[in-house]
Write a protein that binds this DNA or RNA. Structure first.
Length: 457
RNA sequence: GGCCCUAUCGUCUAACGGUUAGGACAGCGCCCUUUCACGGCGUAAAUCCGGGUUCGAUUCCCGGUGGGGUCACCA
């Protein structure tokens, strides 16, 4: 596609914390660009900061990337490449591009150390950025920057340049917070005689207060969304869409589709805000594309044991409940939340019944508070249901057909509200026919009889 | 503050000199309806400001303003 035969991109996170969506958005673009161009995608853990790097963070990065489906073609740990960095350092010193400098250590110990500084040629560097266009920066005021603490403690700029060059990285796709670093690194490429790669600096992802996404201000690690039951393809879709668009009105993409249509040329030049509501919507759209079985197994995975312990719990009933619940959630973890708020208990255990709530509000103005009519309706509806053949109980529509004429003739609200409330004991719930279907003949009749009895008291 | 990047509905964005400035999310309204949810339909909402260039600027140029980033012996 340009001076390089094959595209090689990389994602180079440092394992010093849990990475959030903004970080992974960079990985997504880098990965998508590589796949789109038939190139390679390298994962390199930048763990040269021994003090702050932790294995658990590296594990989290690996897990998150795998979850998103961003498989890499090669894996490196920067710490394992120290010998290569040392060789480059020696070359730089030998060629006069770098020098040893005895300076007081900055750790406050007062001790003196020998640092390696780069001899800055102090020139104006211009590079063509694939998303931003030409960027010109005067490196004069950067001074002779430090490239290593000691010969075997290389610092960021040196390590990155040596690794990228030796790994054959052709396109550096990273956040625009690296723009200021680019001229320094280009200077190093030149001093080392390496071919300079292409750059694509992505606009940052901001939070609701227009600040760079950060853990400190509440940005969540990617695994947070995984644990809440968001679909990986939805996250990928959402991440790809913040700061990029296909130029069409299509918004829902599978991983394969993204790999087909992604292009750096359509990446936005200005920062975008992380929009959780859009993520909800995209996730729901992906949920809708799941099969009945897939939906059910996701929901099972998020169902707490406390629900399974309820007296009337059975997998068959849960399958019926799940179909209703699906309409009401935008991520599968909502099942856990609903269960925790005891919103699901009534599906699997006979709940407390509030007899006054049984009466449709418009009937409460009657002299007897509507008790008589409500009881009469329930007593009339009950036999309509009990006399139904067994087969009808496996079809909510059949149940509806049995009750509807009576409800229609006697006031739908007057009849259906108490029927629904008798079954659910909740002001808001699915309709009575769905509920009767869920509870089955025995469960439904027991609930209705109990409601009738409560109106005699 | 210096330097760099940037600017279309609240948000994500389309438009690559000529459009009634389009779509999506969120909002609001209506319909469906026993409640909730789903669904359907509809509605409101934007080119930061000032100069140029041009027959004509959302679009190109300059300035201002706003926003963001960055100024380590972190990455």
């Amino acid at each position: 596609m340009n001076k390089f035969d094959h595209v090689v991109t990389r994602f180079a996170p440092s394992p010093t914390g849990l990475l959030h969506g903004g970080n992974y958005r960079t990985a997504v673009f880098s990965y998508l660009f590589a796949r789109r161009t038939g190139g390679k995608f390298i994962l390199r853990i930048e763990d040269t900061d021994k003090a702050r790097s932790k294995k658990e963070y590296e594990d989290n990065i690996l897990e998150s990337l795998q979850w998103l489906g961003l498989e890499h073609d090669a894996f490196f740990r920067q710490s394992e490449r120290l010998p290569r960095h040392a060789i480059a350092l020696e070359r730089l010193i030998a060629s006069g591009h770098a020098y040893l400098s005895k300076e007081a250590a900055k750790d406050g110990s007062g001790a003196e150390r020998e640092l390696v500084r780069f001899r800055n040629p102090k020139k104006v560097v211009t590079f063509r950025d694939l998303v931003k266009g030409d960027i010109t920066i005067d490196t004069s005021d950067l001074g002779d920057f430090v490239i290593a603490r000691t010969m075997d403690e290389p610092l960021f700029h040196l390590a990155v340049v040596v690794d990228d060059a030796e790994m054959g990285v052709t396109h550096i796709v990273r956040g625009e917070d690296h723009i200021a670093n680019t001229p320094r690194q280009i200077l190093l490429y030149e001093a080392l005689g390496f071919p300079i790669p292409s750059y694509a600096h992505l606009p940052l992802v901001l939070d609701a207060s227009r600040q760079k996404l950060s853990k400190r201000r509440g940005a969540q690690p990617l695994t947070y969304y995984r644990d809440l039951g968001y679909l990986p393809e939805a996250l990928l879709n959402f991440l790809a869409l913040t700061g990029w668009n296909p130029g069409t009105e299509k918004e829902i993409f599978t991983r394969d589709e993204l790999r087909e249509v992604f292009e750096l040329a359509r990446v936005q030049t200005s920062p975008g805000i992380f929009n959780p509501e859009k993520l909800e919507w995209i996730n729901k759209e992906h949920m809708k594309r799941l099969s009945e079985d897939e939906r059910l197994s996701h929901m099972r995975a998020h169902l707490p044991d406390a629900i399974r312990a309820l007296p009337e719990f059975s997998e068959e009933r849960f399958a019926r409940v799940a179909r209703e619940l699906f309409e009401r959630i935008t991520h599968f973890g909502a099942i856990t939340e609903l269960a925790g708020a005891h919103e699901l208990d009534f599906y699997f255990a006979m709940p407390e019944l509030d007899a006054t709530q049984l009466i449709w509000k418009k009937l409460r103005e009657e002299p007897d508070g509507g008790v008589g009519k409500t009881r009469e309706h329930l007593e009339k509806v009950l036999p309509l249901l009990t006399e139904l053949p067994e087969a009808s109980w496996s079809d909510p529509e059949a149940l509806k057909a049995a009750v509807w004429p009576y409800a229609d003739a006697n006031g739908r609200g007057d009849v259906l509200w108490p029927l629904r409330y008798a079954l659910s004991s909740k002001e808001r719930s699915p309709d009575p026919f769905q509920l009767a279907f869920i509870f089955g003949k025995t469960g439904s009749i027991a609930r209705i009889e109990r409601a009738i009895a409560s109106l005699h008291a």
